[in-house]
């Protein structure tokens, strides 16, 4: 028994074959199971069970407005989906929305972080103000933009457009402008997130490499291209992954602003699944759309994680 040492957290023993060690390890397992049980039961009930029930539901015709047509249809919802033009449009809108908002957030966020990191004074202002948009509810953000920023004439954006000689625009009524607007709103709210993460990451980079580069007379661009960018790569990839997942399932900031309109101009796949289920009350088909969204999410995150591992 002399070899039995309680190393860490009462965890067992350098000689696990001894009885004492085995009993300790067993007790630890039981304790862990008891501690994990409530949270894992809750997660099973609120995530795994809904997933299974979602897939099950997608095999049914379930129309709350016309319950007499309900019944098992197998893969029919998916067959319909593949030839549903509105589905493909919404997928395209999703990809445009996600691609453009993520690219804008990273580019603007990085540019701003590079600017601010060299500031002698005023960094504190950026750190505080950057917090404001990201803690707000996207629903409130959407509402503010829809009214006080984008309303014709007295909305500030339209006011600026008029003064810039562009004339008053129907920001949310024109399909293209509506798309630009919802992209701008999402970018407004979440660029500070990219900015804060990249600024924190920049601040942690080792100073001496830059000293060496300066001694070697590397230009600012070379320093950025050869030192900063490679060192920041993990942080940038992380931001891209996180923001992509959120943008794919963005809801409130589009729902409150355009509700997917005009027509289906800003209807991302997530919103289409919602509208089909809860506005048009076609829950079975809505479930199939949600499964499609899950598959798209898995494929895109798979690609992004592969990118993260590469190099």
């Amino acid at each position: 028994m002399a070899t039995t040492v309680v190393t860490s957290a009462g965890i067992a023993s350098e000689a696990p074959r001894s009885d004492f060690g085995r009993i300790l390890a067993q007790r630890e397992r039981r304790f862990a199971a008891a501690l994990l049980a409530p949270a894992f039961l809750a997660l099973l009930a609120t995530t795994t069970f809904p997933l299974l029930f979602l897939v099950y539901t997608s095999a049914f015709r379930m129309d709350l407005a016309m319950p007499f047509t309900n019944g098992f249809v197998g893969f029919e919802n998916y067959q319909v989906l593949l030839s549903d033009e509105r589905f493909w449009t919404s997928l395209l809108v999703s990809l445009v929305y996600t691609g453009s908002t993520v690219a804008l957030q990273v580019i603007i966020g990085l540019a701003l972080a590079l600017l601010v990191i060299d500031m002698k004074r005023g960094q504190g202002w950026f750190r505080v103000i950057a917090i404001l948009p990201v803690v707000l509810s996207p629903a409130v953000v959407g509402m503010i933009w829809r009214t006080f920023m984008l309303a014709p004439e007295f909305g500030i954006v339209d006011f600026l457009a008029i003064n810039a000689g562009l004339g008053s625009k129907n920001w949310l009524g024109d399909p293209t402008l509506a798309m630009v607007s919802v992209i701008a709103i999402h970018t407004w709210q979440w660029t500070p997130f990219a900015f804060m993460v990249l600024l924190a990451s920049l601040a942690s980079l080792p100073e001496d490499i830059y000293e060496a580069a300066r001694l070697d007379r590397a230009s600012a661009w070379q320093r950025f291209r050869r030192i900063t960018l490679p060192l920041l790569r993990p942080a940038i990839v992380m931001v891209v992954i996180m923001r992509t997942m959120v943008a794919l399932t963005a809801f409130a900031a589009i729902f409150t602003v355009t509700a997917g309109g005009p027509g289906t101009a800003t209807e991302i796949l997530n919103l289409y699944a919602y509208r089909k289920s809860f506005t048009e009350l076609s829950i079975g088909y809505g479930a199939a759309l949600a499964v499609a969204l899950l598959i798209v999410t898995i494929i895109i995150s798979g690609i992004l994680f592969a990118l993260r591992r590469a190099k």
Partner: peptide, 11 residues
């Protein structure tokens, strides 16, 4: 990973 809309439909 599960989209919220995929949780709310069954729930």
């Amino acid at each position: 990973m599960l989209p919220p809309v995929g949780i709310i439909i069954p729930y």
